[in-house]
Write a protein that binds this DNA or RNA. Structure first.
Length: 431
RNA sequence: GGAGGGGUUCCCGAGUGGCCAAAGGGAUCAGACUGUAAAUCUGACGCGCGAGCUUCGGUGGUUCGAAUCCACCCCCCUCCA
């Protein structure tokens, strides 16, 4: 039954490497197994880079196993050097502790805590490292690690070999801390499988070795592939930066748009990675898209599914309302209440009074976040890329803010929907 | 502690007294083409509507003029002790 899980994961392209590949299928089939994946608090929210591992925990849970989400209250204080080009800035303990709480919360949305034998649990590695003293650590844990082997790990190689960078002892020790986590979870929870991104391979195998040495137990490892994009740019970034899971940082609307804008060359792969849709079903979507000319269905399905997973039905509905309002072409169908709703749904918006309008559009729009600088607004104005309630506004009107936002141009007396470029919208409410 | 190398605009990386707001590439933004794609082409890309203003690790100095020269300081890397 669980080897079926592995089959599905393989079909989705979600398996990059396995440690203990020969025994793992039988082991999973043999009963409810406990597995874990770690999430280090490097900010107050996770971003979509953590989505694959999070969904992976859920996939295992749905297959009857018991997932532990480890929040790295300890490892987050150290910093994982794996494949990082540079030493990281340390964050203060109280800051990290605050992030741990937020991330615990976030992680909890993806796994079920009330599922009988396979009920999930959130653990924090600070619980078993905080009180450990240095000498115990060095004698009981450190002794099992060979520096010779550690410096051979691919994940730290560039830090050791590359001219112009280096690695502190602190970060170098990260691998040992994470290895200790695995051994400890094995002891405490009989946890026998660790999941992670492919960059975690070195840390995972370290944990497997340590568990064997410390407790004589056989445990397993599984890594997921790095998510890449066909055009070679980094996955998970948009013009406005990282795509976060926290709706306060990335609105459900922006989140939905991110997936909707997914490239054709990536979208079917992403459907397999990021949704629970059946592989066969996804193949069917791909086939249908290929047959039909024009715009594929896949992006809409992907956006819908992932937004629902992360932001729930309500978040999805809000995102779809805004999308529908903005991209259907005409604003005529919108009522005054609809504008209010769009604001609530997370459409970027601001309120100004007629008396305090800025002197220039460049100032007004860059302030509102429609563009990074006045120069960009100027460029857009010069190319007729800006509209106010669908009326094109040009560079010659830059200083005529009051005219552009005159009452006769308003919708319902006070609403102005400004579009810059093809996709950037901002609602101004002018009282 | 010693010797050497280095810190340039978001990133990589040129620049070693004026022609430098600083080559080139990447990323990003806008336009055309489209499907709110991709590829391609065009323009922008420190800030400012503009006059102009502020940058090249930091602080002082030399000079008519400094990212470029000098002094001191901070940080990083390599090797030696």
């Amino acid at each position: 039954m669980s080897s079926a899980l592995l089959e599905d994961l393989r079909a989705r392209g979600l398996i990059f490497q396995m440690a203990g590949e020969a025994e793992l299928p039988a082991w999973l089939d043999g009963g409810v197994r406990t597995l874990y994946c770690g999430f280090d608090p490097t900010a107050d929210s996770l971003h979509i880079g953590s989505l694959v591992p999070l969904l992976m925990l859920r996939r295992f849970q749905l297959a009857g196993h018991r997932p532990l989400a480890l929040v790295g209250g300890a490892t987050g204080l150290i910093g994982d050097p794996s494949f990082k080009a540079q030493e990281r800035q340390l964050n203060t303990p109280d800051v990290v502790a605050g992030w741990v709480d937020k991330i615990k919360n976030q992680v909890s949305r993806f796994i079920d805590f009330d599922a009988g034998e396979s009920s999930a649990e959130v653990v924090n590695n600070l619980d078993w490292t905080a009180e450990m003293d240095v000498l115990t650590f060095l004698r009981d844990i450190g002794k099992h690690f060979s520096v010779n082997a550690m410096i051979q790990k691919e994940s730290v190689k560039q830090r050791i070999e590359r001219e112009g960078s280096g690695i502190s002892y602190t970060e170098f020790t990260y691998m040992i801390l994470q290895s200790f986590d695995f051994a400890e979870l094995y002891k405490r929870h009989s946890c026998t499988l660790q999941l992670g991104g492919s960059d975690q391979w070195g840390n995972i195998t370290g944990g497997i070795d340590l568990t064997r040495r410390l407790h004589g137990g056989q445990v397993f490892g599984l890594t997921m592939p790095l998510i890449t994009k066909a055009d070679g740019t980094k996955f998970g970034k948009t013009e406005s930066g990282t795509v976060w899971l926290d709706p306060a940082r990335t609105s459900p609307y922006a989140f939905y748009q991110f997936w909707l804008n997914c490239a054709d060359d990536d979208v079917y792969r992403f459907l397999r990675y990021f949704t629970f849709l059946d592989v066969a079903e996804i193949a069917e979507v791909e086939r249908a898209d290929a047959e039909r000319a024009g715009r594929p269905e896949a992006q809409a399905i992907l956006a819908r599914e992932v937004t629902r997973l992360v932001h729930g039905e309500e978040g999805l509905a809000a995102a779809q309302r805004i999308t529908e309002a903005l991209f259907s072409g005409s604003l005529d169908g919108l009522s005054a209440d609809d504008f209010g709703q769009l604001r609530l749904d997370g459409l970027p918006a601001s309120t100004l009074s007629r008396g305090e309008l800025p002197e220039t559009l460049t100032h007004m729009f860059s302030e509102a976040g429609l563009a990074a600088s006045g120069k960009q607004v100027k460029d857009a104005l010069g190319r007729n890329a800006v509209t106010v309630n669908n009326r094109v506004v040009g560079w010659d009107e830059n200083a005529a803010v009051a005219t552009c936002f005159a009452p006769e141009h308003a919708l319902y007396g006070s609403y102005y929907l400004v579009k810059l470029g093809k996709k950037k919208y901002h609602l101004f409410e002018i009282a």
